[in-house]
Every structure is written in structure tokens, then in C-alpha cells.
Amino acid sequence: MDAYLFVHFKEKKTPDGEQVYFALSTDGFHWEQVNGGRPILESVLGEKGVRDHTIVRTDEGRFHILATDLSLANSFHGKYKGDWANIGTGGSKSLSLWSSDDLVNWSEQRLIELGSEDFGCLWAPDIIRDPQKGDYVLHWSSSHASNDYGPKAIYYSRTRDFEHFTEPKLLCRKADSGVIDSAIYEEDGLFYRFLKSEANPETLILEKGSSLTGDDYVRNTAFDEEMAKLEQGVYEAPTAFRLRDGKWCLMLDFYGVEGEGQGYVPFIADSLADGRFIRSDASFSFPYGFKHGTVLGITQSEYERIRAYDWEKLA
């Protein structure tokens, strides 16, 4: 791919922050805002706010954005009484979805209800194509009645058309803590799964497996060593993409301060297999702090189309 699209939200205390924002880059290092830093899409269903965005390009050339149906600005102090635990058990069992053929003309928002009454809130969706089955695995974190809504685990559903989804199944659980914010990538026929561990350690972990939804995943110790150098409990929301030179960039969302200091921090490794991601702030520039999102490789023509589009007509 010739360029990159970052789909994200903004950490603001007003509802306009929890919407869909775009940023663009031609090299993966230097990023520019789209639409003057204003939302590209706005949530009008559910909680009327979205967080934790992901985007996928299907084999048919169609694009889908999915996100957590949650607005702290609208609901945190009212509906949820200022308690994250209330969101975890009583939050939305649906994900928000938009679709497009060209990245500028988007469908109306849909709510995809995936969680049964046994699920808590569905958090942080991500999507990967299964090369063995030719469909798409949508995965997310949630608490569940099976462990009395205790530590969160990762669940998944399969789809071919983003209209019909299979019943959710457990993808993975960590024995000594909850796990959230899963992001899975393929490299040389193997799968690499980033997870935010909520304890032991309270940071990101990286696992390798031979199949997308298999149970043979093992920890990458080199990655553990690098993450141990960071302040614990202040990074989440991994998203990774391949740079033009073949190296991998991992973005981690830093939330350790209030306000302007929040946003993505970049790390670079030679490969996912190597796992030794080195913090590389000096090589990157961002117009503002991007919050929990996903990077998609795009073509030069797609980059130019997004950049030239009159987004103001959406206002």
C-alpha cells in the first residue's frame, strides 16, 4: 500500500469527541488530520457515541468500520453512575457499524447485537480475515456470566458479509487477570495476538499461534522485556501496521495523564516474530492525540480521494 488511514476518536469530555475521526499519512510516520480535525461520522444510535474503532477492507473491496457503542460524555455520570464497573456489566451488547465502497461515502449507522444476556458490555472490536476459511473473525473483550462477570476475556464471531454473524465463542482467557483490546495480525503464516493484560503484568503482551482461533498461543518474551521498561498500567489499545521497509509499527494508546498528554505512542520492531518493539517517538508526528483506533493501508488514489473530499457537506 502507498499510504495509511488512521480511524480513531478523541478523548474529550463532550460528545463530539466520541465519534469517528480520520487521519492520513503517506509514510506511516507523519500524520495529518482530515476534515479540519472534525468528525467524519457521528453516532445517532445507541449511546450516540463510539469508541475503540476498527476498520477492515474485504476481499470484495468493501470497507467496514466497527466501534464500541459507548459515550462517557452522555452516560458516565448518569446511566452508569460514574462507575466503570457498571459499564462493564450493563453496557451495550451491540457494536456500531458503517460500510463504504470508497472510504468517503458511508452507509447509515447500524447496531450489530452480538452479545446475549450473559454478556456484559462489548468492548474494543477488531477484525482479521481468516486465510484458511476465507471469512472474517470479529473479536472483542467482554465480561460474562460464566465467571460471574469477573475478569474479562476475548470472544469472537465469524462473518462473510457483515450482515450475518455466528454465535459468539470464547477466543482466549488469561488465568491470572482479565484481558482486553485484542489485535491480531498474520506474518509468514503465523498469527500474532496483542492483548492488554489487566494485571500480572498490567501492560501489553504478545502471543504467537499457528491458527487464528486455536489454543496453542505462547508469549513472546522479548516483547515482555520491552514492555517491562514502560510505566505499567497506562498503555492500552494496540494497533500495528507494516511500514514500507518491512518493519512493523506498533501504536499504544497512553492514558496516564488527563487531557492533552493522552494519545498514541509509536514503537518499531523488525518483525512480529522478533517482538522487540522499541519506542520511537522522535520519528513520528501527530496533529493531536489520537485515541483507540486502527491503521489501514490504503492506495495513493484512496489517500487523495479522502484528502480532497468535501467533508463539510456532512455537517
Rank of each mutant, 00 (worst) to 15 (best):
Y4S: 05
Y4R: 06
V7P: 01
F9M: 04
K13Y: 09
D16N: 06
Q19K: 14
F22E: 01
F22V: 01
A23E: 08
F29D: 00
H30S: 14
H30A: 08
H30E: 10
H30G: 02
E32R: 14
V34T: 06
N35M: 04
G37Q: 06
I40K: 02
S43P: 08
S43D: 02
V44Q: 10
V44Y: 13
R57N: 10
T58S: 13
E60G: 14
G61Q: 08
A67M: 08
A67C: 09
L70I: 11
L72W: 11
F76N: 01
K79Q: 09
K81S: 09
A85R: 15
N86H: 14
G88V: 07
G90Q: 14
G90A: 06
G91W: 10
L95K: 13
L95M: 15
S96L: 05
L97I: 09
L103Q: 08
L103M: 10
V104C: 12
N105T: 15
N105H: 15
W106M: 03
E113V: 13
L114A: 09
S116P: 12
G120R: 11
G120D: 08
L122H: 05
W123F: 14
P125S: 04
D126R: 09
P131Q: 03
Q132M: 08
Q132R: 11
H139F: 11
W140Q: 04
A145S: 12
S146E: 13
D148I: 05
Y149W: 15
Y149C: 03
Y149R: 11
G150I: 09
G150V: 10
P151G: 12
P151E: 14
A153E: 06
I154R: 07
S157W: 01
R158G: 01
F165G: 11
F165I: 07
F165D: 05
P168W: 05
K169N: 12
G178I: 03
D181R: 11
S182G: 04
E187S: 11
F191Q: 01
Y192L: 05
F194K: 03
F194L: 12
K196P: 00
S197V: 00
E198V: 06
E198S: 11
A199H: 09
T203G: 07
L204S: 05
L204Q: 15
L204D: 01
L206F: 12
K208A: 08
S211A: 04
L212G: 04
Y217A: 10
V218D: 00
T221W: 11
A222I: 05
A222M: 04
F223D: 00
F223A: 05
M227R: 12
K229N: 02
G233H: 09
V234M: 06
V234E: 02
Y235G: 00
A237P: 01
P238K: 14
T239G: 06
T239M: 10
A240S: 14
R242L: 02
D245L: 12
K247F: 00
W248C: 10
M251L: 15
M251G: 03
L252T: 04
D253Y: 15
Y255H: 03
G261P: 04
Y264D: 04
V265Y: 02
I268S: 03
L272F: 14
A273I: 01
D274W: 03
I278G: 02
R279Y: 02
A282P: 00
F284S: 05
S285E: 08
S285N: 14
G289P: 03
K291E: 02
G297S: 15
T299N: 07
T299G: 11
Q300L: 12
S301I: 09
Y303S: 08
E304R: 15
R307C: 00
D310L: 08
D310E: 10
K313H: 09
